[in-house]
Design a protein around this nucleic acid. Structure first.
Lengths: 212, 212
DNA sequence: ATGCTAATTAACGCAACAGTTAGTTACTTG
DNA sequence: CAAGTAACTAACTGTTGCGTTAATTAGCAT
């Protein structure tokens, strides 16, 4: 046997910890911090409640770790896009698509962020990790804008932070409020056609805003 | 005495009901449906817990009434804008400003809607009232767009629903995620200058999208 | 092998919380 | 003004849910 030289341990701290985190992510995403049940997390993780307190000390701290991991994940995926390799307009469109696709593929990100804002970001407040990855994120969008300005295809007076917020907003809002939205506007927000239409509208919105 | 012919009653069903609703709005807005405490609502309303169950039957039903009232309020304020009286471009800008100002002045609206979406809109699901007021709302934005197209100042291929969503999104997202936003972007989202800058950016975004 | 450390479990404690019971008191109507 | 009704209150109940206690067992080092 070449791989799997380690025999599968019955007791595996790292694996148990990871299983708890995964189960917690699902539970917090579905019900928010307040609505989540640590008994449910314990059960779904295949561990038991005492393990949660062993590895994470408290429900709130478990939430904090889930949330931080979610931010690290989206920012990592973003960096992996390698937008530098594309012409500014192509890079911008790719970034808008990525943001939309990421929210669709990882709906828990949105719910976790909503829950954290209901709690006024007190869990993220002193996370240095978030600040570090966010700086790189803002810097790379600024780079993209600068490149576009140099090429004469982007307007020169766009604030990268406002642009970031706007690109997130037009996707995020549509998805997080899809339930009340479906009632207010009397249409299914989640059919493939509706999703495609929304993405196209979002690309149009941003392109008109940014391009000269 | 001309007014106040009714002597102030010690027992006043309508007033008590209204006080409970007002206290519930504050509590639900601050903590969401799950995080709200009916003991707190009772205390802050100056009534007591039994009265809540007398007038509203359950915590969930109380939430439903608070939420419906919130929708009625924003849609009424919107209708009162009387956008028909303005030229299309002016009307559009006034509407964008209104949306922003309403969210700022009534932050509980955002939190209530967030909470309802966490619960997949099950409380609004069979509210006929919401559907009725929403239809008028969508119709009047469609009227505005049509007027602009007739005047040759708006693009002809804008979907009123997508526009509605987008105008809400760019204000709503900024405000609801202002806590995590302040950390990620390392700036205070709520200074007068920041608010003004965001509103200007939003107006620019929509104008570029809609105008020919 | 033996003893030590860390992983794991079941069962429990206790506070918080939604909802109720069992009344008392103000107002209204005939 | 008497009797009925509706507003109102305080104290209580059963359950849920976070966090712990106390004990068991697997893996590892000497």
């Amino acid at each position: 046997m070449t791989a799997q030289t380690q025999k599968p341990k019955i007791r595996d701290a790292e694996a148990t910890r990871a299983r708890i985190l995964a189960a917690a992510k699902v539970e917090f995403a579905r019900f928010g911090l307040g609505g989540a049940r640590v008994d449910t997390i314990a059960e779904n993780s295949g561990a038991n409640k005492r393990m949660i307190y062993h590895y994470f000390d408290s429900k709130e701290n478990l939430f904090r770790e889930v949330l931080e991991a979610a931010y690290v994940d989206i920012r990592s995926a973003e960096q992996a896009l390698d937008l530098d390799a594309l012409a500014p307009r192509d890079a911008l469109e790719k970034w808008i698509r990525f943001t939309w696709d990421y929210y669709l593929a990882n709906p828990e990100f949105i719910t976790l962020v909503n829950s954290e804002n209901l709690h006024r970001a007190k869990h993220l407040e002193d996370s240095q990790a978030i600040r570090v990855i966010s700086r790189r994120f803002v810097a790379s969008t600024k780079d993209l804008l600068d490149r576009g300005v140099d090429d004469g295809v982007f307007r020169s007076d766009i604030d990268p932070v406002q642009l970031n917020i706007t690109i997130a907003a037009i996707g995020y809002y549509y998805l997080t409020n899809r339930f009340t939205g479906s009632i207010v506007f009397e249409r299914d927000f989640m059919t493939p056609e509706a999703l495609e239409e929304r993405l196209a509208f979002n690309i149009e919105t941003i392109m008109r805003l940014v391009c000269v």
